[in-house]
């Protein structure tokens, strides 16, 4: 809880936290059906209405309420981001930790495999995976998770290797501590800080990637709402109905900004020294 207090004292941490919490509330409300309108309900009589008291962010070409769609869209984007980063973190931590600890052949296999994955530009790798599995929200989760796994593997392996050489690990070995104990107590515990930072920043990237995939029509599929889809829909109507473009554009950028600010603040607070190692 002292971390929360520090975050609130940190200028960009405070702003990041406020933004992120606001978006989370909107997303939860959207998922819980608390949006002002049914996000899927079309109303032919209320097409392309400018923002007003009843439709705060206006309506789209099918007369759907933009605010309501934004709420479920944010929820959809967050869900994909959270799940994909969670999978990538888990896979990357296990791979990175074991590669660092066991070294040798296993390290070689893992790292060459990661090299192969890293040889693809991120979004192309995601596109390849989607090409195979067909577009959907779940495919996006898998694709983004696979794209970020090598990054987490490296983020864990590097510090784990240097932790392994630290005196306190030698000290533990001199008592005869078991490998499992050393990995969990000395390596994993000290990796929490750099991982927290990396997870926050990865969430920001994942939001961007998810929106990009949906924008291309390869992520979340209509009639479901997502930020990328809303932007794609707005393309041809931007002059007639600028709110259709500006609302999701600002929302997406702010959601990303929130995580970025939070990540920066966490980096300042948790690990001033690992700054370079993670860059």
């Amino acid at each position: 809880m002292s971390l929360l207090r520090d975050l609130l004292r940190h200028p960009s941490g405070r702003i990041g936290l406020i933004i992120t919490v606001l978006f989370l509330l909107a997303a939860v409300a959207g998922k819980a059906g608390l949006s002002p309108f049914d996000p899927l309900a079309q109303d032919r009589l209320a097409r392309l209405q400018a923002p007003s008291a009843s439709h705060l962010f206006g309506t789209d070409m099918f007369g759907r309420d933009v605010l309501s769609r934004l709420m479920v869209g944010v929820a959809q984007s967050f869900i994909v981001s959270f799940f994909s980063v969670a999978v990538a973190t888990l896979a990357g931590t296990v791979l990175g930790l074991t590669a660092a600890w066991y070294g040798g052949l296993w390290d070689g296999i893992v790292m060459r495999l990661m090299d192969v994955l890293l040889a693809f530009p991120a979004i192309l790798l995601a596109l390849l995976i989607i090409a195979i599995m067909g577009p959907s929200g779940w495919t996006s989760i898998l694709a983004i998770a696979i794209v970020y796994t090598p990054i987490f593997t490296r983020v864990v392996r590097g510090p784990a290797l240097s932790l392994k050489r630290r005196d306190f690990v030698d000290a533990a070995r001199s008592f005869g501590s078991s490998r499992r104990y050393i990995m969990s107590r000395h390596l994993a515990l000290n990796l929490v800080a750099p991982l927290t930072v990396q997870i926050t920043l990865a969430l920001a990237w994942a939001l961007i990637t998810e929106a990009g995939l949906s924008f291309l029509g390869l992520g979340t599929q209509p009639p479901q709402a997502s930020l990328g889809l809303m932007l794609a829909d707005a393309r041809n109507l931007m002059e007639m109905a600028p709110w259709l473009l500006l609302v999701p554009a600002v929302a997406l950028s702010f959601a990303v900004l929130g995580f970025n600010l939070l990540g920066d603040a966490l980096r300042d607070l948790l690990d001033p020294k690992t700054r370079r190692a993670l860059a």
């Binding site: 630290r166 005196d167 306190f168 030698d170 000290a171 533990a172 008592f175 005869g176 501590s177 078991s178 104990y181 107590r185 000395h186 515990l189 000290n190 929490v192």
Partner: peptide, 19 residues
């Protein structure tokens, strides 16, 4: 360097016993 910064003194002193 030889004391894990994230453990309390009690946890540190317990290490050899746990081992």
């Amino acid at each position: 360097a030889s004391l894990n910064p994230r453990l309390t003194v009690k946890q540190l002193l317990a290490e050899p016993l746990i081992a």
